[in-house]
């Protein structure tokens, strides 16, 4: 009963946070989306001037990750309703990336904005799903980013240990990533304290490990007995500190952060499970004496990494 209440409370807080995060983009632009290979459609809530809209120099477009590289706008079309414009680019767009469309001196209805920026993304749930799958398979933190290897090799000897570690890790990961995101967006960024990232995030991780430890001990002693031993190991894992840093670098919002954290945690679980299944069999295999233990584990991980390269370039939606 009490567990249900706590879960409901957590959901409520997440909902509230994501509400705040989503609200920022809703002002004068009703809809911004990709159309054909090289087109972006933007719909405003009120009419805009035709002469302004026809001038290509009023627009600039770039990918969010490369703000220095501008994409040329070759033509702008205004639909008869005077609210929707279609930007035609000089090259095809990579729709997996978030694009920013900037507009100078725009007049919408009676309001004038000297500088207006609009984010263009794929269909939102598709985008979220691609972040999730990206963190879990395409950019698996263990096999394609080489993080968290100490814990990975340490706890992948037995399947039961591997699953326990993976689940504990996922819980702590989600918890600490959300807290770090909150702290970064509402404390570090507004006060220009971004240089304290490392110190604050590592503190946050230790704190959330301690918090999960205390809560689990009180709420569910059986679960604590099963997973408590892995909690200490979580702090020594680089992934848990890498995810908040990636969130801060990419300026993800609350829901996107949740998806990345969940994907990273489950990706680690998948990697641990695969590895432990192989290592249980390696115990029975005839391995040359100098390869026993870690060396053969590394070679196995290398084979897995080669297999995971097959996921690269995969894109959904």
């Amino acid at each position: 009963m009490r567990t249900t209440k706590i879960i409901l409370l957590c959901l409520f807080v997440f909902g509230l946070l994501s509400g705040i995060a989503l609200a920022e983009n809703v002002n004068v632009v009703r809809k911004a989306s990709f159309d054909k290979a090289n087109q972006i459609i933007i719909e405003f809530i009120e009419e805009i001037e035709e002469a302004w809209a026809k001038d290509v120099n009023n627009f600039y477009v770039y990918q969010k990750i490369n703000p220095d590289i501008l994409i040329g706008v070759s033509k702008v079309e205004l639909l008869p309703d005077k609210r929707t414009i279609t930007l035609v680019m000089s090259e095809d767009l990579n729709k997996n990336e978030v694009h920013i469309v900037g507009m100078k001196n725009i007049k919408i209805g009676k309001q004038t904005f000297p500088k207006l920026q609009v984010q263009v993304k794929k269909f939102y749930f598709g985008y979220l799903f691609s972040i999730f799958i990206g963190a879990m398979l395409v950019n698996n933190f263990v096999f394609t980013k080489y993080l968290g290897l100490c814990v990975f090799f340490g706890t992948s000897r037995k399947k039961s240990t591997a699953v326990g570690m993976g689940i504990t890790f996922t819980i702590v990961m989600v918890f600490s990533a959300m807290m770090s995101w909150f702290l970064y967006q509402f404390v570090l960024k507004p006060f220009n304290l971004s240089f304290l990232q490392v110190v604050v995030f590592i503190g946050m991780v230790s704190l959330s490990v301690q918090a999960v430890d205390t809560i689990l001990r009180k709420v569910n002693p059986v679960l604590f007995k099963a997973f408590g031993v892995y909690l200490v190991l979580v702090i020594a894992n680089c992934i848990i500190i890498a995810v908040p840093l990636i969130l801060a670098d990419n300026e993800y919002n609350a829901v996107e952060s949740l998806m990345l954290a969940l994907g990273a945690g489950l990706g680690f679980l998948v990697a641990l499970f695969l590895m432990s299944s192989v290592r249980e069999r390696l115990e029975l295999a005839l391995v040359p004496p100098s390869f026993r233990g870690l060396p053969i584990a590394f070679v196995t991980a290398g084979l897995f990494a080669l297999a995971f390269m097959g996921f690269s370039g995969m894109s959904l939606f």
Partner: peptide
């Protein structure tokens, strides 16, 4: 290739052993 990192470390450890 990224995957070769694992092979290299594994092989070098084996040589040390």
């Amino acid at each position: 290739l990224p995957a070769a990192g694992f092979f290299c470390v594994g092989l070098m450890m084996a040589i040390f052993n």
